[in-house]
């Protein structure tokens, strides 16, 4: 069985990027990850029949680069996506959901209402506290900061 190794530095790529890039090649090879030494990861490929080492090697390295690009904006992208989806839900007619009988018991419903009330109160008081020195605009929604 054809095999080869690529050593990747954690100074250049995150462990998640390495893990993902390795996963993308699992149609062509069995891939094993291990720590080589401090800050180095050894990626060991055992080729599956009918596939070419050079193609897998370059695809793996390309995936690492691509993942680096994604990582630059992943956190912002997730925040934006959540905000957009929240906005989408505002447009849904949920009347039929309200008509549905709740799956919670009366007691559980009361507990949930109480919990929601407590969390809302806590959030409110935190926001009051932060309003005066809100340099980073954390009291504003994503939409208020980034919308048109």
């Amino acid at each position: 069985m054809k095999q080869f190794d690529i050593v990747v530095s954690l100074e250049n790529y995150s462990i998640n990027a390495i893990r993902y890039a390795a996963y993308t090649q699992t149609n062509y090879a069995w891939v094993y990850l291990s720590f080589a030494e401090k800050a180095l990861v050894n990626v060991h490929f055992v080729m599956k029949a009918g596939h070419d080492i050079e193609t897998v090697k370059s695809a793996f390295l390309q995936e690492l680069e691509d993942e680096k690009i994604r990582e630059k904006s992943r956190a912002v992208n997730v925040a934006a996506s959540i905000e957009i989806i929240k906005n989408a839900f505002k447009n849904i007619n949920v009347s039929f959901l309200k008509e549905e009988k709740s799956v919670l018991t009366k007691k559980q419903e009361l507990e949930l209402d109480k919990l929601i009330e407590e969390v809302e109160k806590e959030l409110q008081s935190e926001m009051e506290l932060n309003k005066s020195d809100d340099i980073k605009h954390i009291t504003k929604t994503w939409e208020e900061t980034n919308g048109k």
Binding site: I84, I92, V94
Partner: peptide, 22 residues
């Protein structure tokens, strides 16, 4: 781009493609 997002329009597109969740 993270700035100038049209939340209403983008949200509606998301809803069109994900209506079965609702």
């Amino acid at each position: 781009v993270s700035e100038m997002l049209d939340f209403g329009k983008l949200g509606l597109s998301w809803l069109n493609t994900h209506c079965n969740v609702c």
